Computed example of a mutant assay.
Amino acid sequence: MFRTMPFSLLAVSLLFLSGCSLFQPDERPLSGTIEAEEVPIVAEAAGLVQSVKVGEGDVVHSGSVLAEIDKRNYEAAVNEAEAAKAQAQAKLDEAKAGSRNPSIQKGIALVQQADATIVLQEVRAKQAQAALAQSKDQVAQVEMQWEGAKRTLAFQENRLKEAVALFQRGAIAKKEYEAAQEAVNQAQTQANQLAAQLEAARSRYDSVQQDIAAALAQKGTAEAQRKGAVADLELLKEGSTSHSIRALLAAVQQADARLDQAKWQMEKTVIKAPADGILLRSSVVEGEVAKQGATLFTMMKTDHLKLKVYIPEAELARVKIGEKVEIRVDAYPDEVFAGQIQTIADKAEFTPKNVQTPDERTKLVFAVTIRITEGLDKLRPGMPADVRFLAEGEAR
C-alpha cells in the first residue's frame, strides 16, 4: 500500500498542473497616450473685443457664444449699404416706370438676377482668396512647429538611450532614467498633436481651394445666363426703354453685393463654437483689439478622444473593429473607462521605441486606434493609458 502512494501523489500533481494550464494566462495590458483633435477658432472680423464669455477648461457647445467684437462700425456699414441699395432701386424703378410691357419687366429681372449672382460669386471668390492666404500661412507655421517637435523628440530619444546605458551600469538613479522616459513621452505627445494640427490645417487649405473653384464655376454659369438674358431683353426693349436701365441694373446689383458683404462681416463679430468641446487655450482678453485671422481660442472636441496601441502580430486575430475595450489611467486608478476599436492598421510595423520594452522593439506589431466612449469629461490628451481587450463573450 505504501509503495503505491508516490504514484498516486504523482498522478494528482500531474492532474493539478494540467488543470492549471487550462486557465487563460494573465493578459498584459497594452499602453499608449490619449490624443485629441484640436480646433483653432479664428477671428474673421477685426475690432475691439467687448466681452469674453468663456475661460480655459470650460465646456462649450456648438453655436454657443465665446466672445463678442464691437459691431458698431459694422452696423454703420450695413446701414450705409442699405441706403445705397434703396437709392439705386428707386432710380431703377423710376426708369422702368415708363415701360408697362410685362415681358420687358421679366427680362430686366432676369438680367438683374444674373448680375447679382455674378457679383456675389466674385465676392465669395475674393473672400476665399483672402482665407487661402491665411490658411497657407497657418500651414507653414504649424509645419515649422512640427519640425521643431520632431527634432526635440529625436533629441530626447538620444538622451533616453544614454540614460538606459548609464542606468544599466548603475551610473544614474532610477529616477533620472524615468525622467528621461517621461521626456520622450511628452515630446512624442507634442509631435503627435502638432501632426494632427498640421493635417487639419492642410485640410482647411484644400477646402478653401475648393470654395474658390466652386465660386468661379458658379460665376461662369451666371455670366452665361446673363448673356442670354441680355440678348432676350435687347429684343424686347428696343424702342421701349432707355439704355440707361442697364447702368441702373448694374448699380442695384452692386448695392446688393455690398449689403450682403456688410451683413456677413457683422455676423462674424460674434465668435461662436464650431462644435461641442472643451476650451483648451484662450488667447484673447476683453479690451484687446483682435486682428482678422488671429487665433482667439483653441478647443478640443469632446467626442474625438482616441488612443493608439500596438498589438503583436501573433495576437492580431483576437481583436476586431467595433469590439469594446477597458481603459485605465494613473489619474483615476480605481476607475475603468470604455473604448471601442475604431481602426486596425493594414500593414505591420516595428514596435515604436516609446511604447514597448527594449527586448520587444524588433517585433512586428499592428497599430490599433481606439475611440474613447466613456470618461470624456475626465480624460485629457497626453495622459498615458493602459488598454485591456475583452475576451470573447466577456461583457463590461
Rank of each mutant, 00 (worst) to 15 (best):
F2V: 05
R3K: 11
T4L: 14
F7V: 15
A11D: 06
A11T: 13
L15G: 11
L15M: 15
F16V: 13
G19S: 06
G19Y: 02
S21E: 08
L22T: 09
P29M: 15
S31E: 15
V39G: 03
A43D: 02
G47F: 05
L48M: 09
K53T: 11
V54I: 14
G55E: 11
G55W: 04
E56K: 06
E56T: 11
L66T: 05
A67L: 06
E68P: 00
K71R: 08
R72S: 12
R72I: 04
A81R: 05
A86D: 06
Q87C: 03
Q89T: 14
G98Y: 04
I108Y: 07
A109N: 12
V111Q: 03
V111H: 00
Q113G: 11
Q113H: 09
A114G: 05
A116L: 00
V119S: 06
A128K: 01
A128D: 02
A130K: 00
A131P: 01
L132M: 10
D137N: 07
V142R: 00
W146S: 10
A149W: 09
R151K: 12
T152N: 11
A163N: 13
A173D: 14
K175A: 14
E178M: 14
A183G: 11
Q186W: 04
Q188V: 13
Q188L: 14
Q190S: 10
A191K: 05
A191P: 08
A195Y: 02
A196E: 09
A196W: 00
Q197S: 06
L198P: 01
A201D: 07
R202G: 11
Y205R: 11
Q209M: 07
A213F: 06
A213L: 08
A217T: 10
Q225D: 13
G228W: 08
V230Y: 01
G239W: 05
T241Y: 03
S244G: 03
L248S: 15
L249K: 00
A250N: 05
A255W: 01
R258N: 10
Q261I: 02
A262G: 09
E267T: 06
E267H: 08
S283P: 01
V289D: 04
K291H: 03
Q292A: 07
A294E: 10
T295P: 02
L296G: 04
F297Q: 01
T298I: 12
M299A: 05
H304T: 15
A314H: 03
E315H: 12
V319A: 11
K320D: 08
G322S: 08
G322H: 06
V329F: 08
A331C: 14
P333R: 10
E335V: 14
E335S: 14
A338D: 12
I341V: 13
Q342F: 09
A348D: 04
T351V: 12
K353S: 12
P358F: 08
D359Y: 01
T362F: 03
K363W: 00
V368T: 10
I370A: 07
R371V: 03
I372T: 04
E374S: 14
E374D: 15
G375T: 14
L376A: 08
M383C: 13
P384M: 13
A385N: 12
A395V: 15
